[in-house]
């Protein structure tokens, strides 16, 4: 590492005047400035625009000149007789995905750590990352290769074993499994990288001393790796809880081919909003729906964070 000349003015470290803590805090504060400015400009200022959720927004009058209409724009979402199903599906699939992805990704990361040869690690990681590059639209095309009634691979397998062809796109029950499977498939490589990175960051001395104490592989995983991954797992899950009301649109729209027969399983808030407002160009209703998703997410994450704080304050988000 090259020597740093950046902070010349701080060289006489024990200067009196500012107390050390205040100055240090100030320095830390200075570091945050570019990031804070970006968030203010690109997140917080536009956030004010979310008020159109409560307005009868007319572009020519501008956001502030448009009339207030209270909660009118929320009506379409809550007046839908599917609201219960939508909320259930969204939350259910998200919970499943949080647990499943964490489980599979941690397993991959821990196993990857057991692989000796770097070349294998590299190969596995590269392959596991591939789904990240395939957009859901294309995954939808691939899905038809699997599920197509006539030419699909699955039905060919079924036929091979003498079964009767299944109409995959018309039979909801299978999709309780298909949806999570595709969800995990798409994200496991990506998420496992975070866990793998955490394992890489563990001080090797800890493992070495455990080995001296005679720990075997499983013992090291159980007593060192997994406990050290715990905060990471908790933080990752906590962050996901905030989007509990948001679904990965592409997964629920393109993979099931937007087949109406499957809606009892695959219809989530995001697909419903898209479907109902398509063509209407209705910005206010979609803003209202988004706000609802955000508020629920906020409540959920603050609650969970408070609980985590009680038991394990260092894994809390804020």
């Amino acid at each position: 590492m090259a020597k740093t000349n950046l902070t010349v003015q701080n060289k006489p470290a024990k200067k009196k005047g500012l107390s050390l803590n205040a100055r240090k805090s100030l320095q830390l504060g200075v570091l945050t400035i570019p990031g804070v400015i970006w968030f203010l400009v690109f997140s917080y200022i536009p956030m004010a625009g979310a008020v159109i959720a409560f307005k009868d927004y007319k572009p020519k009058r501008g956001i502030w000149g448009s009339e207030w209409v209270g909660f009118d724009n929320f009506e379409f979402l809550f007046s839908s007789n599917d609201a219960g199903r939508l909320v259930f599906n969204t939350v259910f699939h998200n919970f499943i995905s949080i647990f499943l992805v964490a489980f599979v990704a941690v397993a991959i990361a821990v196993f990857m750590d057991l692989v000796d040869k770097r070349i294998y690690v590299k190969t596995y990681q590269t392959m596991l990352f591939l789904p990240r590059f395939i957009s859901w639209v294309v995954v939808g095309f691939i899905g038809t290769i699997l599920f197509h009634y006539e030419h699909g691979i699955l039905n060919q397998v079924v036929a091979f074993f003498g079964g009767e062809a299944v109409s995959w796109y018309l039979t909801p029950k299978y999709w309780w499994f298909i949806i999570p499977a595709f969800g995990v498939w798409k994200t496991m490589g990506y998420t496992s990288l975070v866990y793998y990175g955490t394992i890489m960051g563990i001080d090797t001395q800890i493992f070495e001393s455990a080995e001296i104490d005679g720990a075997n592989t499983w013992g090291k995983i159980r007593h060192i790796t997994l406990p050290l991954l715990r905060p990471t797992i908790i933080i990752m899950s906590l962050m996901s809880v905030g989007s509990i009301m948001r679904a990965d649109f592409g997964l629920f729209y393109y993979v099931p081919n937007n087949s109406g027969s499957l809606y009892s399983v695959t219809d989530v808030l995001d697909t419903y909003i898209f479907r109902a407002l398509r063509g209407a160009g209705d910005m206010t209703s979609s803003a209202a729906a988004g706000l609802f998703q955000s508020v629920v997410g906020l409540i959920m994450v603050v609650t969970c964070n408070t609980i985590v704080k009680k038991f394990e304050s260092e894994s809390a988000l804020f």
Partner: peptide, 14 residues
């Protein structure tokens, strides 16, 4: 920081 992951102004203000 986390708050910006939950709330956004949406497409039009951006």
């Amino acid at each position: 920081v986390y708050f910006t992951m939950l709330f956004s102004g949406g497409l039009v203000p951006m």
